[in-house]
């Protein structure tokens, strides 16, 4: 009989330890870069900035405004993608679902590419970041709407049709992104870089842009986590026990799409975090969504911080890889292992 190690236990101590490790990762991410720093210096500089003391301004800029900002943004993005992935997996009742499978990430990428190609990215907009994030969020929601409409074509929304509709929409939008790229050579590098995902040059502005969407989406998702448990058994079961399935699913899908859209708009398209983090966590803590969301967020945050560290130290002389390349390279084989393990576990 298969057992889930932490299933049904009290989660507070384990979550507290994981939170310390995960948030500590964000701080540890500041150690890496062209300028070697030791932990004492980093802590000292961060503490000095927090307490308002005068410190070496150049060092303070490097540690707090460049590295810590980037590290925190990576953490927030990873947590956001993992939470959104857990929600999509639960609602679609499909452990392979994530912001990509349902086409939401590609929708956000298409919205942003359109803004870049139209030259609108530099125009004034939300929080001085240009129209790019707005276009990405609009793209995410539009892709979700398209997927729901397509998935509903046969009458009721079914999990198989939603995933199929997601693949159709994602493929179609990817083609449109390629079309935009070939039509407009000038913005090519900008689009490519963005579609691969990266935290290069990201600042506190991006983190403060992401945070409110993440918090709002998270609040909705946590409030509906019981409904998420029930919806993971399917619509009929949910209605039998008294859940307004259509409304609960809509709230959860919109919340997860907003989280995804906000994450994609600050970091580009980063794959596999939303797929692997919830999957891995489910093996250890079980599928109850309230603890699952908390664990997945913490694991996803730390995973993306370390992926970003790898992205900026792997190549010599300060060159950077897009972080999406790292997550795909690490996540792909890792996911194969999980699938194999699952396949073995299910055989008697």
């Amino acid at each position: 009989m298969r057992q889930i190690p932490l299933s049904g236990r009290r989660h507070a101590p384990a979550l507290a330890i994981l939170a310390v490790l995960s948030l500590g990762s964000a701080l540890a991410g500041c150690l890496f870069g062209p300028l070697r720093l030791d932990p004492a210096t980093v802590l000292h500089v961060v503490w000095a900035r927090l307490s308002g003391d005068a410190a070496d301004p150049a060092l303070s800029t490097i540690v707090v405004d460049i590295r810590l900002a980037r590290s925190c943004l990576a953490w927030l993005t990873g947590a956001a993608l993992a939470v959104a992935g857990a929600v999509f997996q639960g609602i679609l009742r499909n452990p392979l679902a994530d912001p990509f499978t349902i086409g939401v990430s590609t929708g956000a990428a298409f919205g942003a590419s359109l803004a870049i190609a139209a030259g609108a990215a530099g125009l004034g907009g939300a929080l001085g970041m240009g129209l790019l994030p707005v276009a990405a969020m609009a793209g995410a929601l539009a892709a979700l709407a398209a997927v729901l409409l397509l998935g509903r074509a046969g009458g009721r929304l079914r999990r198989e049709t939603v995933v199929l509709a997601g693949i159709v929409v994602a493929t179609f939008l990817s083609a449109l992104i390629s079309l935009l790229k070939s039509l407009d050579e000038e913005s090519l590098s900008s689009i490519v870089f963005w579609v691969m995902g990266s935290f290069q040059g990201r600042t506190w502005t991006h983190a403060t842009f992401l945070l409110p969407y993440l918090l709002a989406g998270l609040a909705a998702v946590v409030l509906y986590s019981r409904e998420l448990d029930i919806l993971s058994l399917g619509d009929d079961q949910a209605r039998m026990v008294g859940v307004d399935a259509d409304r609960a699913r809509l709230v959860l899908l919109v919340a997860a799409s907003l989280i995804t859209g906000a994450a994609v708009s600050v970091a580009g398209v980063i794959g596999f975090v939303g797929l692997v983090a919830p999957h891995l966590v489910r093996l250890v803590v079980g599928a109850e969504h309230r603890p699952l969301l908390a664990y997945a967020g913490l694991v996803g945050g730390a995973a993306l911080v370390w992926s970003d560290v790898l992205a900026r130290v792997l190549l010599p002389e300060g060159q950077e890889l897009p972080v999406g390349v790292i997550t795909a390279l690490a996540g792909g084989p890792f996911f194969c292992l999980l699938l194999r393990r699952k396949a073995r576990g299910e055989e008697p």
Partner: peptide, 9 residues
């Protein structure tokens, strides 16, 4: 019948 796709207790 019911299909439980995830390890809920």
């Amino acid at each position: 019948r019911a299909e439980v796709p995830f390890p809920l207790t």
